[in-house]
Design a protein around this nucleic acid. Structure first.
Lengths: 89, 89
DNA sequence: TAACATTAGGGTAATTAGGGAC
DNA sequence: CTTGTCCTAATTACCCTAATGT
């Protein structure tokens, strides 16, 4: 059962989200997305986790959302409720 | 049970890290990962060491603050024997 | 022995990391 | 507060040919 633990490079993740690779790096640095480091220091991301984030897995409807109380509120717990347990066994 | 007496080829390790086999060879040359040489000069890597590197080897994530803490990993156990992991600038 | 895929080795582009500022 | 762009340095990817492993 490979849920897809393929690893993606920062550039691929950035392309998927249509953001700058630097932004993906910031997400990883902030702990918003799990990352695996190569011995050289580069990051690799789990495809399953990235796809979960793309799907909006856990994200409620944002149709009416405009305020986007991200950090302002306590216990933000924004969205995906956790790491989506992408890859743990 | 063999926790890792199995030896992996550069191609195997490269696939695990989603990097080029040449990069794995470079890691071995730089001493970032242990390697066993065949009489012919080819390298073999210990599966236990590779898996330890993949898991993060004692490093959960670099999340620090801001946002919310993600779930904690499954007890990272004790770091094996933190080998010479040195190197970032 | 022969054939095939993989690996080693060097060299050169492309990508990534990290910081700091707007 | 988030994102994109600037910089420099390090790491990685792809090019090649020859040797090794099965």
């Amino acid at each position: 059962m490979d849920t897809g633990d393929r690893l993606l490079t920062p550039g691929e993740v950035a392309a998927l989200f249509r953001v700058d690779p630097k932004t993906v790096t910031r997400w990883a640095a902030a702990g918003r997305i799990g990352s695996i480091r190569t011995p050289g220091g580069h990051r690799r991301f789990r495809e399953s986790e990235v796809r979960a984030l793309l799907e909006g897995e856990g994200m409620l409807d944002e149709a009416d959302e405009m305020g986007r109380p991200r950090n302002a509120g306590p216990t933000a717990s924004t969205g995906p409720a956790g790491p989506a347990n992408a890859g743990m066994y």
